[in-house]
Design a protein around this nucleic acid. Structure first.
Length: 403
DNA sequence: TCTGGGGTCCTAGGACCC
DNA sequence: TCTGGGGTCCTAGGACCC
């Protein structure tokens, strides 16, 4: 199988090109920027179509941010300051106070996400959705997909996405998903990289282990402790040694990954496993002293997750909660019931029972509500209408011959 | 003045069944 | 008195990803 891994980049404000800028933080909507413009620069009427005309000095700066947000993404000009995704904004403000800070607008990202994926599916229908800005593509059967090792098709996809959406994207082409993902990072932004099987030693082995999708900070620290820093170091270890130190499953996977082996297919469709809503409070809350406020937030989370389920047509039978304490420790509790639900009051009731099973002596920083073991709502209703569907075989209703 | 929100998958122990 | 093995489901925690 040959795979593309494509991820998109996107800059909505051409006037910010080359400037350090981060997106992230609080609950403000992008509309606020337009509203503020109309209030403070009334010489014209500003709309969402005028984003490119917003003066650079009008954008809010990172140094003025107060709160608990993190960076969702940062421009390449911001990264030399040590700024990157998932970093706390307060910390980022110390590293680069002059950076421009934009609020996240997930509704807008989802619109662009749908658009760029539709373009890709038109060209190469075997596409796996990996989130808002990333996809895998199996182009084995796409006409012309093998020309110049896939470079021709990759260019076509880039141009089609740019024409339809104005977005740029980087693309990696390789014999499998694992290598395609790594290849896509070689030439960012807006580049195309091709990694062949023969390139393993020269292009992949010098990379740090963290570049493998699936080796995170914990596994990397353990590998480092054994003197394993690069993927080449990892490949040099016996599989048996890796299995002995990292477990049968993970150890064997580490060995395969280091040797560029990955047989996972590109998965075009999948059902959701769970849906959840969670929120980090502006200040840590106490279960007793802030009971009323916590109760309101809890109810809202249940209503939100119920709304998500209903809108997407799912019900679930495992209802759970998640707490993050002020010391950042996490506790979860869940409960499975016979009758799947998408009802806010029922979810609130079951989640409330979970809440009673968890320690509430420490201050809370985050509260979440989750519904899992999902099924399609219409499929569940169809089951209900099937007579005796839940009767065990040995308890069937008496047959006519026994009368 | 560190550290969001929405997910998936894996592990491991216990209950329970055959 | 000592003590099977499957298998599935449930629960809690944790690693990891975008």
């Amino acid at each position: 199988m040959d795979a593309f891994y494509a991820s998109v980049e996107w800059l909505r404000y051409p006037q910010l090109k080359g400037l350090p800028m981060v997106i992230g933080g609080g609950r403000r909507k992008e509309d606020d920027l337009i509203g503020r413009l109309n209030a403070e620069r009334p010489e014209r009427t500003w709309t969402a179509a005028d984003l490119a005309d917003i003066p650079v000095d009008f954008f809010p700066l990172l140094r003025d941010y107060v709160g608990r947000g993190v960076i969702t993404t940062a421009t390449y000009a911001a990264r030399p300051f040590g700024i990157g995704s998932a970093m706390g904004l307060m910390k980022a403000a110390r590293l680069c106070p002059q950076a421009i800070l934009l609020p996240v607008d997930f509704d807008e990202y989802r619109r662009y996400s749908r658009a760029f994926k539709a373009v890709i599916r038109d060209i190469a229908p075997v596409m796996e959705d990996r989130g808002v800005d990333e996809v895998y593509i199996d182009f084995t059967d796409v006409p012309g997909g093998q020309r110049e090792s896939g470079r021709v098709l990759a260019r076509l996809i880039q141009k089609s996405i740019a024409d339809a959406t104005g977005l740029t994207c980087s693309i990696g082409v390789a014999p499998n998903k694992l290598l395609a993902k790594m290849a896509s990072e070689f030439n960012k932004p807006a580049g195309i990289s091709i990694v062949r099987e023969d390139d393993l030693q020269t292009l992949i082995w010098p990379l740090p282990c963290r570049k493998i999708n699936g080796i995170g900070p914990k596994a990397d620290a353990r590998l480092q402790a054994h003197g394993i820093h690069t993927i080449g170091d990892l490949a040099a270890r016996d599989q048996a040694w890796l299995v002995a130190h990292f477990g049968r499953s993970y150890g064997a996977w580490l060995h395969d990954a280091a040797w560029g082996r990955d047989a996972r297919p590109v998965v075009t469709e999948s059902e959701p496993v769970s849906m959840s809503r969670e929120t980090t409070f502006d200040r840590d809350l106490h279960a007793v002293r802030d009971r009323a406020e916590l109760g309101r937030i809890f109810t809202r989370l249940c209503e939100q997750v119920a709304g998500d389920l209903q809108r997407k047509g799912y019900v679930g039978k495992t209802i759970g909660i998640k707490l993050r304490y002020d010391d950042f420790k996490i506790a979860t509790r869940d409960q499975t019931v016979a009758e799947p639900t998408a009802d806010a009051r029922r979810i609130r009731q079951l989640a409330g029972q979970c809440l009673k099973r968890v320690p509430l002596d420490k201050r809370l920083r985050l509260l979440g509500v989750r519904v899992g073991s999902l099924a399609k709502a219409d499929a569940v209703r169809a089951d209900d209408s099937t007579p005796h569907a839940d009767l065990p075989l040995f308890q069937q209703a008496p047959s006519a011959t026994e009368n």
